[in-house]
Design a protein around this nucleic acid. Structure first.
Length: 283
DNA sequence: CGATTTCCCTGGCCGC
DNA sequence: TGCGGCCAGGGAAATC
């Protein structure tokens, strides 16, 4: 369940590892969600970026100079879905991809003999290659709200966005349209930290300020800890994150609230398991 | 046309 | 021990 902190952790590891590398070959699992990976062949990696939960690998044609007539290049977009993992494999003997590793969905061979490998047990992930600057055709990405650390994301924008819809605030946070990068874990944590009921449909100015700040601080702490590993998540080095030891709310139904000691309860909002404290999270 | 529901996937876990 | 059934859940397609 990679959310913004997990994807950012991987981005920070991959950027120095593959920037400058040239993609010379590719093999994929035969499914339309993954076969677009082939379109990255013949390109050079400029840098590894991120938007919400999407990794955006900036590509230019091999040999092109930045800002040349080759244009603005392309983005190799990788969404990790639920169980996606990316890592760099330095074993040249496996570069052709003829040997099989379980659940591999794509392997990009690099000119220096290494390769970038994407595995995804449950195939909720997705790969695309699109011209930089154009709509990606991925609806969630094209409609994505501001990054949580962007000045465009503030309490007033959050409040007006929430109040403009009748949907539960938890649902809206997961939609990616009010703010980018929250998934079920960090949404529950942020709502708990801000003292906002997950089914609330309106925010006061004061609560919007608390929630905007909580979103930023929860995501910062998640990045700082290298993400949350409950089961599947591993970073680009194969290591687990550490934020699972700092969770106050997510997955703790039945346990006492760290703030008021009341029993945390589980409910379902928009088909998503939701944990919260009835006492300190008011509508 | 925006809101809501369904479906995609498979490993892990629970209970019998 | 074996196995059926259920759960996890982001996002896109289908439907309301």
């Amino acid at each position: 369940m990679p959310e913004l902190p997990e994807v950012e952790t991987i981005r920070r590891q991959l950027d120095p590892a593959i920037s400058g590398a040239v993609i010379t070959d590719c093999v994929t699992f035969d499914h339309p969600k993954f076969t677009p990976a082939h379109l990255a062949v013949g390109r050079r990696v400029v840098s590894v970026g991120r938007r919400g939960k999407y990794l955006l690998v900036h590509l230019l044609p091999d040999g092109a100079a930045t800002g040349s007539a080759a244009g603005n290049g392309e983005h190799l977009i990788v969404h990790l879905g639920m169980t996606g993992r990316l890592h760099v494999d330095a074993d040249r003997r496996r570069a052709t991809g003829t040997d099989d590793e379980p659940y591999r969905r794509a392997r990009w061979t690099l000119a220096d003999g290494r390769s970038l490998v994407f595995t995804d047990v449950r195939r909720f992930g997705r790969i695309a290659v699109v011209p930089n600057g154009a709509p990606t055709g991925l609806a969630t990405l094209d409609r994505m709200g501001p990054e949580p650390f962007d000045p465009a994301f503030d309490a007033l924008a959050l409040r007006s966005g929430v109040n403009a819809s009748r949907r539960a605030i938890k649902t809206q946070l997961l939609s990616q349209q009010l703010v980018a990068g929250l998934g079920n874990i960090y949404a529950d944590e942020a709502l708990w930290a801000a003292g906002v009921h997950p089914a609330a449909r309106r925010l006061t100015v004061a609560r919007a300020e608390r929630l905007a700040q909580a979103i930023r601080s929860v995501l910062s702490a998640g990045i700082e800890a290298g993400g949350t590993t409950l089961r599947d998540y591993r970073d680009a080095n194969g290591d687990s994150g550490g934020f699972q030891f700092q969770l106050h709310c997510y997955g703790r139904a039945g346990e006492p609230c760290d703030r008021c000691a009341a029993e945390l309860v589980r409910t379902v909002i928009d088909a998503r398991s939701t944990t919260f404290c009835r006492v300190c999270q008011r509508r």
